[in-house]
Computed example of a mutant assay.
Amino acid sequence: MKMQAVAQQAPGGVETMELVERDRPQAVPGKLLVRVMAAGVNRADLMQREGRYAPPPGASPLMGLEVAGVVEEVAGESNFQPGDAVFGLLEGGGYAEYALMDEALAIVKPDPLSWVEAASLPEAWMTAWFNLAEKAGVRAGDNVLVHAGASGVGVAAIQVAGLLGAQAFASAGSADKLAFCRELGAAQVFNYRQAPAFGELVKSWGGADAVLDPVGASYLAENLQALNPDGRLVNIGLMGGLKAELDFGRLLMKRISVIGSTLRPQPLETKARLAAALRERILPGILDGRLRTVVDCSFPWSQVQDAHQYIADSRNLGKVVLTMFPLQAG
Rank of each mutant, 00 (worst) to 15 (best):
N191P: 01
P82L: 06
D142W: 01
A68L: 01
L287V: 00
A54V: 04
A59E: 11
Q194P: 01
S171V: 03
I259N: 04
L317C: 08
A104S: 14
F80D: 13
L19H: 01
Q4W: 03
G260V: 02
R264G: 06
A307C: 12
K2C: 08
D176I: 05
L132A: 10
A166N: 06
Y53P: 00
I236S: 11
D230I: 00
G58F: 04
L132E: 05
A244I: 05
A104C: 10
A104M: 04
G318M: 04
A221W: 00
G69Y: 05
V28W: 01
N143F: 01
T16H: 13
V6H: 11
Q225W: 08
W129H: 03
E18Y: 14
R52N: 15
G93P: 08
F299D: 03
M37G: 15
L291W: 09
N79R: 15
L163T: 14
Y192T: 09
R315E: 09
K254P: 04
L46C: 07
L283S: 07
G173Q: 09
G92I: 01
L19A: 13
R315Y: 02
Q328W: 04
V189R: 02
L287W: 06
I282F: 07
A10Q: 14
R193D: 00
A179R: 14
E50W: 00
E222L: 02
N223W: 01
G237H: 08
